[in-house]
Simulated assay, not measured.
Amino acid sequence: MKKSTLYIIFLILAIAGECSYAQTEPFKGYRIEGDMLVFVFDKRDYQEATIASKRIDVEDLDIRNVVVSGEFNNWAKDKWSMIKINENIYELRKKLSDFTDEFTWEFKFVINNEYWAEPFQRDKNAVRAFENGHALQSYNLKMYMAYPDKNGNVTFRLNGYDDARKVVLSGSFNKWNKEMFIMTKAKDGWTLTLKIRPGEYQYKFIVDGNWIEDSTNPRKVLNEFNGFNSLIDVKGQINFILDGFLEAKKVILAGSFNNWSESECQMTQTKTGWINTLMLSGGKHHYKFIVDGEWTLDPGNPVKEYDGKGNINSVCMVK
C-alpha cells in the first residue's frame, strides 16, 4: 500500500542444539534496517581464515575484498561483493523482499575470493554448516516472526517466580523454541521485549522446564495437550492517506476492520489531503474512502479486489 508501513521480514540467528542464548548480545554477521538486510563483516570478529586445510591468521591477510557466500547463492565466492566501510568493516545490503518467508540459510564471509573467514570457536552465534559434505564453521540464519529488541513493540512479563533459575518465552512467533528467548529477571518477576510482526500468536512461559500460561492474559486457546496457550494479537500501525480532495467537507475511512462504518473513522485534513492512522491486526483488509458521501477507491493504491458481492475495494496488507 502506498505510504503505509513497510512490510518487514525479521531475521534472527538460530541456535545450534540445546545451547542457551543471551538476547542482549548483538547479532553478528548481519543487522536489519527497515526493509533491508545488511550483511556485516567485522575483521575483529575473526581470528583465522582457511583455504583447503591451510589456516592463516586474519591479521596476516592483506584484505582486498570480502564476499558473502551461502546457500542463497550456491556458496559462490565471487558474486555478493561487499563495500568497505572502514579499516575493519565491510557491508552488503539486500532487500528483505528478495528473501523467502520461511528459510534456514547458512552463510560465511570469503576474503579475497578464496579464504573462508572463521568465527571464534567461543562465538555462540557460530554453528556448523556443510558444503559438499565438508563441515564449515558458519553463521546459520533462520527466519522467525520476532526478535529481542529493547525498543520493540511487545513486552512480555511474568509476575512472581523469584526463585526460578531460568524463564523462557516460547510461542508460535519463534516456532516454540525452548531456549531462544530467555527472559530477564526484573522487580517482582521476569520480562522480555520483542519486535514482532503484526499477527495473532500463541505463547507460554517455561519456568525451570515447566510450561505455564500467562495468568494476566485472559485470551487463550486450547492446545493439543488438552491445556491452554495464551493468545496475543499484535497490531501494526497503518497510515491511510488520501491525496487531494481539498474541497471536501468530510472524509470517512470505512473498511472490513470497522464493519464498514460510515462514521467511526473520520479523517483529518492536511495541506495535501487527508489522513487517518489505525492499529490493525495482521492480514488482509478491504477499505474505501467516503468523500462527502461518495464511496471512493484509494487512487494511490493499485491493489484492488472484488469482495464477492460485486463491489471493488482497495486492499491493505498488514505484515
Rank of each mutant, 00 (worst) to 15 (best):
K250R: 15
T216E: 14
T184V: 11
I241L: 09
K187S: 07
L194C: 08
W190R: 11
A248S: 14
I232Q: 03
W211Q: 12
K185W: 01
G209Y: 15
M180L: 15
L192P: 06
G199M: 01
K195A: 08
D208W: 12
A248E: 11
K235W: 00
D214F: 10
D188M: 05
E224Y: 12
L222A: 13
I182L: 14
G244A: 02
V251M: 07
T184S: 08
I212T: 13
G189D: 01
T191A: 09
V234N: 04
I238F: 01
G244E: 02
E213W: 04
K175V: 10
G255K: 08
R197E: 08
G236F: 00
T184G: 03
K250F: 07
A248Q: 11
N177S: 07
G209M: 07
A248M: 15
I241R: 13
G189S: 01
K235D: 00
V221R: 13
F228H: 04
E247V: 04
K178D: 14
W176Q: 08
N177G: 05
F181C: 14
V221L: 12
T191W: 06
G209N: 13
K187E: 14
N229Y: 12
A186V: 11
W211S: 13
K175C: 11
E213G: 02
N217I: 11
K249W: 05
I252R: 07
L253G: 06
I238V: 12
I206H: 06
Y203K: 09
F257S: 10
N174T: 09
E247K: 07
N229T: 14
Y203I: 02
P218L: 12
G189T: 01
P218V: 08
F205W: 13
V234L: 01
T193Q: 02
F173W: 01
I196K: 00
K178R: 14
L194N: 02
V234Q: 03
F240H: 03
V221G: 04
I238D: 00
N239M: 07
L231Y: 04
I206R: 06
F181R: 13
G209R: 06
I196S: 00
N229A: 07
M183I: 02
W211V: 15
N226I: 10
L231M: 04
Q237C: 03
K195E: 06
L222Y: 12
G199V: 00
T191D: 02
N174D: 11
F205L: 11
K250Y: 02
F225I: 12
N229V: 13
E213A: 04
D214L: 13
I212G: 12
G209V: 10
F257K: 06
Q202R: 13
D243V: 09
N239V: 13
D214Q: 15
E224P: 07
G227Y: 08
N258D: 15
D188P: 04
L231C: 05
P198S: 04
S215F: 14
K235M: 00
V251R: 01
Y201M: 01
K175L: 15
I252V: 14
E224K: 15
